[in-house]
């Protein structure tokens, strides 16, 4: 079974698997090019770029970040549904630190990130050391985590004014949103670490066949531990962005449901939930598809009642295009008609 799976993914990998999500993204953008006026219009306002495309990149930042972490977790045949709650906790801690203690920026950034990593480590511990199923392990933190975030902020929205911290969510570096710089950094480092070192291969082998990996000398336990910690870190960064963006921590709503968007992004990107081969670029494209869709819907003013249906239809279309079986059956039908 697993040998088959590996073969299958190896054959299919590289640019070929990415072509379908890419075409999905291109289709959404093309639609806007023709039917949404001003969608591609980018102007310079207050010496930074301003336009719908910039919004897409900026708004996609949290989902892209957590889907980078999620990709690695899923590659080990795991899943982390606690990221939404970790986002809320990270934001809550940062906002409370600013509002209540006036701590310096370094503390405001590092403390939430450290705690997010500890929370990730807790997930990793449950999964790798105790052997709890990943979805259950992270479900615990998903439920408890939001409660913790609400405890930190007393159930209220904690607001703050702190120019340096707000820069994380609202600032511009060389005219582009700073969030894009953050993504580029996290993405670049992760891509390098997993592709230029053996780490990526280890992660994939743990996902394909943990027993064989263990026999070939890979420490399955520590690999799993590391990916969950990394997922916690990514969620922590996303939490800082979310809080900085609205200048406040909204523990009830921050990151709510974002874990599902991240999983969707990973799957749209052509990654299998069974683990094994993974593509970070695929997940990145997946996240961009989701956000382009949202921005399109908001810009065009699709009625609220059908918004979710429209989203679902587009996602289904992308999945169908990706499915080899579906494409073959369509091809077969055409062949039958024209003998």
């Amino acid at each position: 079974m697993s040998i088959n799976k590996t073969n299958h993914t190896i054959n299919n990998h590289g640019f070929v698997t990415l072509i379908w999500p890419l075409m999905g993204l291109a289709a959404i953008l093309l639609f806007n090019l023709f039917f949404t006026p001003n969608f591609f219009h980018i102007e310079i306002k207050d010496s930074h770029l301003y336009g719908s495309l910039i919004d897409i990149l900026n708004r996609a930042a949290p989902v892209i970040l957590i889907s980078i972490g999620m990709t690695l977790v899923i590659a080990t045949a795991g899943i982390d549904i606690s990221v939404g709650s970790v986002i809320a906790i990270s934001g809550a801690i940062a906002a409370s630190l600013i509002a209540k203690t006036g701590a310096p920026l370094l503390v405001v950034v590092t403390v939430p990130l450290l705690i997010s990593m500890i929370l990730g480590a807790w997930n990793g511990f449950l999964v790798s050391a105790i052997g709890v199923q990943p979805i259950i392990a992270s479900l615990i933190l998903m439920v408890a985590g939001r409660g913790i975030a609400q405890l930190i902020t007393d159930g209220q929205i904690v607001t703050f004014e702190n120019k340096a911290f707000e820069y994380i969510g609202n600032g511009f570096l060389f005219g582009i949103p700073f969030t894009i710089t953050i993504i580029a950094l996290v993405f670049g480092v992760t891509q390098t670490l997993t592709r230029k070192t053996a780490l990526g291969l280890f992660i994939e082998s743990v996902g394909c066949n943990p027993t064989a990996s263990r026999f070939s000398g890979i420490s399955v336990r520590s690999i799993k531990q590391v990916v969950y910690i990394f997922s916690g870190f990514c969620a922590g960064v996303a939490g800082l962005i979310a809080a900085a963006n609205i200048k406040g921590a909204d523990s009830n709503n921050a990151g709510d449901g974002l874990e599902l968007d991240a999983i969707l992004a990973v799957v749209i990107g052509g990654n299998s939930l069974d683990g094994g081969k993974f593509s970070l670029t695929g997940s990145l494209i997946g996240a961009l598809i989701i956000q382009s869709l949202t921005t399109t819907i908001l810009t065009r003013g699709v009625p609220v009642e059908v918004t979710r249906v429209v989203k679902a239809l587009v996602v289904v279309a992308v999945f169908l295009a990706q499915s080899e079986t579906f494409r073959n059956s369509i091809r077969a039908k055409f062949r039958r008609r024209t003998p």
């Binding site: 919004d55 929205i157 609205i246 909204d250 709503n253 921005t295 908001l298 810009t299 065009r300 609220v304």
Partner: peptide, 23 residues
């Protein structure tokens, strides 16, 4: 001229308004 849900939250209110202003 424009109507969308912001789910009663600050973050979504901001995102929706951002898109409205461009459209």
């Amino acid at each position: 001229v424009k109507s969308q849900t912001g789910n009663f939250t600050r973050a979504e209110g901001k995102q929706v308004m951002e898109a409205f202003l461009k459209a």
